[in-house]
Design a protein around this nucleic acid. Sequence first.
DNA 1: TGAAATGTTGGGGCG
DNA 2: ACGCCCCAACATTTC
Length: 452
Amino acid sequence: MKKAIVWHNLDLRTEWNPALSAAVQECDEILPLYIYDEKIEKLGSASKWWLEGALKDLSSEYQALGGKLCFRVGDTKKILGELVGKIGAESLYFNAQFEPAIFQLQKQITKKYPCEVFNGNHLIDPREIEVSKGKPYSVFTPFYKACLKEISVPTKPPLPRKIHTIVSKSDSLKFPHERWMKKLEKNWTPTRREGLKHLKQFISSSLKKYKYDRDYPAIKGTSKLSPYLHFGQLCPHEIWHAVKGKEAYTRQLFWREFGTYFLFHFPDAQKKNWNHKFDKFLWDKNPRLYEKWTEGRTGYPIVDAGMRQLYETGWMHNRLRMIVASFLIKDLFIHWTYGEKWFWDTLVDADMANNILGWQWTAGSGPDAAPYFRIFNPTLQGKRFDPHGEFVKEYLPELRDLPEKWIHQPWKAPKEVLEKAGIHLGKDYPLPVVEHEKAREEALKRFNKIKR
DNA sequence: TGAAATGTTGGGGCG
DNA sequence: ACGCCCCAACATTTC
């Protein structure tokens, strides 16, 4: 009788799960286990909400297979040690995680117990992409090309209709609920079935025009698969096969790989500027402005609409992530780590590596980053990517009656236009908290100081 | 996965 | 008819 533990991490699915498939094939009985360990990674609010739903869903997937998932809260090593002894497990099966803390933990576990480790959550293994001149890739395109040259994506691993699991006592699946999470319930269903539905729908209706549509927040042109991918309810391998050949989308899948690769090779980047020149940058501490940014009350409609979409739905369109990030950093001079924290807490797809890469990219301190002088003009970005103001009006109903011409710059609208639209600036909708043109000049000055 | 400043060109108005 | 000027429209450079 061979017994083993299947240790789930961010692979909350039974199908398309190489670790689980191998365990079921090679063992007589398994104990499927998920451990929530805050010492390894403390989740944000939105992630906790999603995790709870995803674990419920995983439980029911196991039930459908005639098995049962064990869920525990606490210290991973302690719990694993206890369970290995209790059930007499010969080995552990799991999919690799490459975030620094969990990677180190998995490494230690591997030394302690016989383990079978698989790559179930990523298209590439960051250790296997050849580094050039002894250094990891720090530019996306060559990295991407190297991946495509190396890559061989496995096909679906087999999983029997019925599996035998060992039942062990579980902790409660419930996280404390915040009132805010009601908003998430309205917008998301955190199950694999729903993820598959999104995938199917995306392929049939948006994939063809993805390259163009993905930049327009008013168009539902993106896949919205990110939370399902993050929690491993969908496997990147199955997405790869499903969208095969669509370069614009595949490229985005590889930005996720690049994020993982980047943080794996530069774990310090989690807290510190990857480019140390930026350590000398003069940031402002301005809690009042930061708060206005989080609330979507900066007076720049495209920024505010993005921030409110995030708060209302737990998700933000990619184009807007770039715009609001540029605004926080280059118009308000607030350190990127503040933005990173807010995203971590509120995004349902909050992913450590992607989040860090995204923010360092915007700040200019990351690899292959936007040059410091690349500063988004929120009015122009609005006009370009939400030309009719449809998106802005969806999240800023107070601007509903403002004509297209002024929708991205209400402060410039003539008095009578504002009156007719029923808007008293500074009351119904804020005046701009900073003047972009001046902020831009100031940003260039400050960036110039650290250039050299 | 920028935007502003500066440079160049060419058509049309006009003396 | 010609040259001059103006200024879009586009291209290039700079931050």
